[in-house]
Every structure is written in C-alpha cells, then in structure tokens.
Amino acid sequence: QSVNLRLSVETPPGHVRNLAAERWAETIGELSGGDIAVEIFPAGQLYNSADAIRALASGALDLSIQASPTLSRLEPNLSVITLPMFFGASAEDVRGILDGDLGDELWAMLESRGIMVPSGGHFEFAPNNTAYTVEPADSYAALEGRTLATPPSPVVVAIMNAMNINGVATPRTEIVLQLTQGQIEGMGSVTDLTISGGRLWEAGIAHAFNDNAGWGVYIPLMSARVMNGLTDEQRQIIDDAWSQTVGWARDYAAEELAHARATNEENGITYADPSDEAVSEMRERMLAVQDDIVDASGMNADFVARVAEALQGA
C-alpha cells in the first residue's frame, strides 16, 4: 500500500534547506519504488516554524527540516552550539559534537517530545557573526552601545547584553523597515547567507564583523507518531534516504557559504576579519557569563559541561 507524507519548511524553493528536502524526498521515492511519496510545502505555506514543530509532535505533520535556534524553543539544549564556547569553532568542531554520543543524546531529548531525527543527523548552514552594521565597526569595542536586531533567542539576547550591545529581538519581517528608518543600526548574530539572501545591502548593511560567534544547524525531523504508524521497512527507507542525503547537504551548504561572502563583498559590504586573538579573548570574556546564560535559558548544566569537555578535548 502506498503512503503520502507531507514535508513543511519555511524557506522558499532554491534555499539549501529546500534543496536538501527535495533530495531527501526523491531518495525516499526511489528507495521505496514509489511506495512512499513525499510532497514538499515550501515558504511556510502549511506551517510556520513554531507550528511545524508542534504539528510534528502531534502527528499532524510528517516531516520537516528546522533550524536549531527555532527548535530550541522546544528543547533548550539545542542552543548548546550557540553558546560562547563555540566562538571561533569550525564546522568540524560542531560535527565532532553532534555526530557523536552527545548528538545522539540531544536527538533523544527531542524524541522524548515526539520528534525523531534520522540517521546522518544535522547539516550546518553557517557560523553566526556578531554584527552586520550600517556604520563601520571593526572591533568588539566599536560595537558597544549599538542597537542591533537579533533573532528571537534568549541565548543570543544574553550574549549581546554581555557584550554591551543593545540586542533587540526583532521579527524578520520588521528588520528591513527598521534598518531603513534607523530604529536599528544593524543586525546581530546572523550569517552571511541571511545578508546575501535578503540583499540587505540595499537596506543599508555595509560592514560585517565576521568573528564566527557560535553556530546554527539544520536538523531533519520526523514525527514519531507518524513513523510509529509505518512498517519497519518504510521507517528504514526514510531513515536510509536521509543518510544518503546528508553528505550532499553538508557539502552544498559549505559551498554556498563561501559564495555568500563573495556576493556580499561584490555588493560593497566590507569584512572586518577580526584576528583569532581578538575572538578568543572575547570567548574567554563570554565564558564568564556562560553559566548564567545556560541557567536562564533552561538548558541542562551537566549536558553543557560534557559538551564543553568534549569540545576542549577535540
């Protein structure tokens, strides 16, 4: 008997997340010999991110791919890779954690809420940079006192405060207006892709302080309730299909990231390229407040400590 599954993402076709979803869906189709069909609903047509997460848990939605900061509303520990200890970390460092036992532990936390992560796990989109600004800023000191729009995340807001930056959590839909009208002087804790994707140089962004301050990843998700209603074989196919997709997704995302900086520079954005010393100095300064952030954002201190240990060992 044939199965129809629905996959919902908020990003438009052509976005790395959608491309990965399409590839996953195709592979599922191939491996099942057409037995399982996946229809993709892009651009938040079906669910916005918060709703998608709830719908996965309830079984109203079958599949999705979500960004770690969004998912951390449900499972705060997913913010672990955004913490100061990941300042200056590489994609390999993130994989070292998430592809191992600690990653499995994280996915198990999600599974206890009814959402499963297939084998193969996450793919990275980009490191967050502390600031993209209208006026020049090439050091942490120069950023102090600026008002920057940040994604809605308690962890990010806390880090910004500790850096003496006025982080204002702003919905994406308001950012361009506020930039052009001057309520904000830039954006905090976003990626090169956000800038190039939104052509934000046209809204006034002209400088990037690219300090590689923490990471965000995309995580493929399956509704546990829906999966439990499938046969073992069907579940295996969906799982295998992602294992066959994730490598491509990681490579493609890395390629796109390299391309994003070039695009931004072509459009007149100046990169500050802060030194490794400056970044590690800031990391040390921020580590002093990390415990408070962990506590305030509902994360598990023991889990964070074990991640910190593994990261240092790497």
Partner: peptide
C-alpha cells in the same frame, strides 16, 4: 493540554 505536555515555550527570554 497537548501544549502543556510538550512544554513548548516562547522564543523570548521570558520563555
């Protein structure tokens, strides 16, 4: 009841 069971929180620092 479902949302309570899921313990889903807002994205702000109030959670």
């Amino acid at each position: 009841e479902f949302s309570r069971m899921l313990d889903d929180r807002s994205a702000s620092s109030l959670r």
